[in-house]
Design a protein around this nucleic acid. Structure first.
Lengths: 113, 113
DNA sequence: GCAATACTCAAGATTCCACTTAACTATAAG
DNA sequence: CTTATAGTTAAGTGGAATCTTGAGTATTGC
């Protein structure tokens, strides 16, 4: 049954974090490796303050960890965050598949898609 | 490198749909099998109109399909939606892992977590 | 020390979302 | 036909989310 490790309250914060296109782009960038807040900000037409707020949302969702080094703040992906997301999705998908298993080779009353 | 089938515009709608706790609960319910809008609504302290709006969001995200049968509307999970989400997550996770591969067995400068 | 850099914080403006109400349509049941 | 059921639509409200401005603080380089 698996029931991998995702806390329901964290799941909400993760989906909410990734609901924003800016933050999804940031995650893409971060999957190439850690960067400073300023580097993270470069592609975006918005103030540093706004970028920082996005970083804070990502951090609260645990998708990201940050660490201050001198006057710079390094942002890096937190593998546990992505793993938690993946666990939730796999779990939902699993429920779906178990249902199909129970149906066996029966034909549904309507052929859907 | 694999690049599974997720359209970037759909990804946004999916995350946005699942950012709402009510809609996540609906997906849970739907993973047990299809239900009518009224049945979907039962657990929630909100009007049918509100529930319908949630269903529409889920449908636009392609996480769900609906079909009108008489005066009832059946709502069912769309496996392709979950699959698209899973593909996105796996892709991000993949990028992360490829990066770790490049690092080989090097130890990071800081033990994080 | 002094200036530049890199962020940080708080307040306010918009814009977006979830929800309600109220009226309406279509189907089913008696 | 009449009523009840199930859903649909449009308009409006309140609160949360995003972004800006305008300040401030800590570090680095000269």
């Amino acid at each position: 049954m698996m029931k991998a490790g995702w806390k329901p309250e964290q799941t909400g914060r993760i989906f909410q974090a990734l609901a924003d296109p800016t933050r999804r782009e940031m995650v893409e960038r971060l999957s190439q490796g850690p960067v400073t807040v300023s580097e993270l900000a470069r592609p975006f037409a918005m103030t540093l303050a706004a970028v920082l707020q996005h970083v804070q949302v990502l951090e609260q969702s645990e998708l990201v960890k940050t660490e201050k080094q001198g006057r710079v703040r390094l942002v890096r992906l937190n593998p546990e965050g992505i793993a938690a997301l993946q666990a939730w999705v796999a779990d939902r998908n699993g429920a779906w598949e178990r249902r199909l298993d129970r149906l066996g080779s029966l034909v549904e009353d309507k052929r859907e898609n």
